[in-house]
């Protein structure tokens, strides 16, 4: 697929949280989606360091993000994160919140 010289890995592998649990840590770029566990959010702006947990109902994984907490984060439900797996935690390089879902369904 990639015609031009690749400098950065352009491929993200999609995993579910349960698949991630049984995966070995590595450098593979992974994208995973989950529900934000509301009371797990810990934000330290001084570092900056944002940690939180994502869950699919059964499996939960700790996420660590060395970046700024985006707007609307506390109100998000679905979250997509890109990053790599370390021992029992996921190092997030990119955080994606869905557009404020006042668009239908939204938060109850």
């Amino acid at each position: 697929m990639v015609i031009w010289p690749t400098r950065v890995s352009a491929v993200l592998f999609l995993y579910t949280l349960s698949e991630l649990k049984s995966l070995d840590p590595g450098d593979k770029k992974i994208r995973v989606k989950g529900d934000l566990v509301k009371d797990s959010i810990n934000w330290n702006p001084g570092q900056p360091l944002l940690s939180f947990e994502l869950t699919d109902g059964e499996n939960t994984m700790k996420m660590v993000y060395n970046g700024v907490k985006p707007d609307n984060f506390d109100h998000s439900q679905d979250l997509i994160v890109v990053g790599k797996l370390e021992d029992n935690k996921f190092i997030v390089s990119k955080l994606m919140l869905q557009c404020p879902s006042k668009y239908e369904e939204g938060e109850e």
Binding site: W4, V8, V11, K29
Partner: peptide, 26 residues
């Protein structure tokens, strides 16, 4: 639409921003 195509190979793959940049810039 690659994520949907790739589903047939068993593992859903998403193409990153860098893929589109490399592909389209020339």
């Amino acid at each position: 639409i690659f994520p949907i195509i790739s589903e047939f190979t068993g593992r859903r793959i998403v193409l990153d921003k860098s893929f589109f940049n490399q592909l389209t810039v020339p």
